[in-house]
């Protein structure tokens, strides 16, 4: 310590990391309680060390948690509000003469209740649709993150697929990470004939080709396919074949594009 301040700035980071113990830890805690500049340094160190969390493998939040949370906050708000109680029925008394006015009023209430019930049904339906959409978006985000992770991984290979003689002109590239079993195909091909489809294959070093997607392609468009194959599958090559419409379990048609994994 220097005039009470930690002599090494890293002490704040080590404290934020939770590595300090005993006197070392207590010294920091005691000091920052009365020293605003050091408290600020500790807050910055907390932020730096908190970022280590981002190195965790992406794990999307379970689909139901958000819904439970929203129900929980609505429940907590209701808890602060008033409560409704069923009042005991009373004998006819001085207000009995007002019955002529209460009858149309109760009719009005009944209509309002029906309206509210229908409105609640509509809201339920909207909430369900929104939940479904949110789950779909979560899933899309998770997939995008997997792809981003894969693109940045050192063990991802890029394979260029070349057009074959007497076949439609085209070009494509496959990014493949064998450890994750994830591949991304980007390519351009002329539209497939009416009764045909293009089919992308992973040709493993051992075993039969694995289908990675079926597509028809459109004029001037780029086809993009993301496919998951069994993790750990070592690839020898990637190929696109022309197959009967809808694809086949194993390649039967001619190679349109082919690229060996170097």
């Amino acid at each position: 310590m220097n005039n009470g301040h930690p002599t090494r700035e890293e002490d704040f980071d080590l404290y934020a990391l939770g590595a300090l113990e005993g006197d070392e830890k207590r010294t920091i805690e005691t000091h920052v309680a009365d020293c605003a500049p050091c408290a600020e340094k500790l807050a910055e160190a907390q932020g730096r060390m908190a970022m280590i969390a981002l190195a965790a493998p992406y794990s999307p939040p379970p689909a139901g948690v958000k819904e439970k949370l929203m129900r929980q906050i609505v429940g907590s708000s209701t808890g602060r509000g008033g409560t409704f109680a069923v009042m005991p029925s009373k004998q006819p008394g001085v207000f009995a003469g007002w019955l002529w006015a209460l009858v149309p009023l109760s009719g009005g209430f009944a209509c309002a209740l029906v309206f509210l019930w229908l409105h609640a049904l509509q809201l339920d339906s909207q909430i369900e649709a929104l939940n479904n959409r949110a789950q779909e978006q979560d899933s899309q985000i998770a997939q995008q993150r997997s792809i981003i992770d894969m693109l940045g991984a050192k063990d991802t290979v890029v394979v260029s697929l070349a057009e074959q003689k007497l076949q439609p002109l085209g070009t494509a590239r496959v990014l493949y990470n064998a450890k994750r079993g994830l591949l991304v195909y980007n390519g351009t091909l002329p539209p497939a004939p009416a009764d045909k489809s293009y089919q992308l294959w992973l040709v493993p070093t051992n075993g039969a080709p694995i289908s990675a997607g079926v597509f028809e392609s459109s004029e001037g468009g780029t086809d993009r396919i993301t496919a998951q194959v069994p993790a750990g599958t070592a690839a020898k090559a990637f190929a696109v074949t022309l197959e009967p419409r809808g694809g086949k379990p194993a390649p039967t048609g001619p190679f349109v594009l082919l690229g060996p994994v170097s």
Binding site: P57, Y58, P60
Partner: peptide, 11 residues
């Protein structure tokens, strides 16, 4: 939530 879920599951 994605960031938090990831670190919670990792720990």
């Amino acid at each position: 939530a994605g960031m938090l879920s990831s670190v919670l599951n990792r720990i």
